[in-house]
């Protein structure tokens, strides 16, 4: 049991799934039925034809994270699941922001955009569309700086994650799932030797 157990945290989970009709429905239905909280979900084709990758941001404690990965693995259309906890990985999100801009504010906005290495992808009479990629913190900072000008619309892609080529101490393929994605005995939420049973949420009767 880690010290963080019991606290709400965000975890990133990446799943390789078959690119078939209804797969997204199966995944989302499982998440809904088991009452997991998902902060974001991004889906797209992978390097292998016929397979897609999904990146989940899961909210919950260690027990929730473990259940999410295990329940995902149970789905027949899910080929491999990696939980990126404690893994050195690149996290990116893309955001489109429409912001009010007139002749007097435009140059100031362009300066901010440059600092963030973002791009202006559309210019209108009274607004701009800004495209920015980065981690959530960067995206949120940009929006904070733009908000005095009037942020009209925000679109976010959801988080994408990829494990870095060089790791520190931990493994390169994500926690608790080997490279082949076979089922391993990865229950971390264990009763420790000599530890007393901890209270867990009670199931409702009936």
């Amino acid at each position: 049991m880690t010290q963080n157990n019991g606290k709400m945290q965000q975890h990133t989970v990446v799943a390789l799934v078959y690119d078939r009709p209804g797969v997204l429905n199966r995944v989302v239905s499982m998440v809904r039925r088991r009452a997991f909280n998902i902060g974001s979900l991004a889906v797209g084709h992978s390097e292998t034809p016929g397979l897609s990758r999904m990146t989940f941001v899961v909210e919950g404690d260690d027990k929730v994270l473990e259940q999410v990965t295990k329940q995902l693995r149970k789905l027949v259309d899910v080929v491999r699941v990696s939980d990126l906890k404690g893994v050195n990985a690149v996290y990116r999100e893309l955001s489109l922001v429409r912001v009010s801009a007139n002749a007097t504010t435009r140059s100031e906005i362009i300066q901010i955009v440059d600092i963030f290495r973002a791009n202006i992808v559309d210019v209108g009479h009274d607004s701009l569309i800004i495209e920015v990629t980065g981690d959530e913190e960067k995206l949120e900072s940009l929006v904070t700086l733009l908000s005095p000008f009037g942020v009209l619309e925000i679109m976010r892609s959801g988080r994408l994650a990829m494990v870095r080529g060089i790791q520190g101490d931990s493994g390169a393929n994500g926690n608790s799932s080997d490279a082949e994605g076979t089922l391993t005995d990865d229950t971390q939420w264990v009763r420790e030797d000599g530890d007393e049973a901890k209270a867990t949420p009670l199931l409702p009767p009936g």
Binding site: R73, V190, K198
Partner: peptide, 10 residues
């Protein structure tokens, strides 16, 4: 595997 640790911690 999903049953291990779902309701009771082993």
């Amino acid at each position: 595997p999903a049953e291990l640790g779902k309701n009771v911690r082993p």
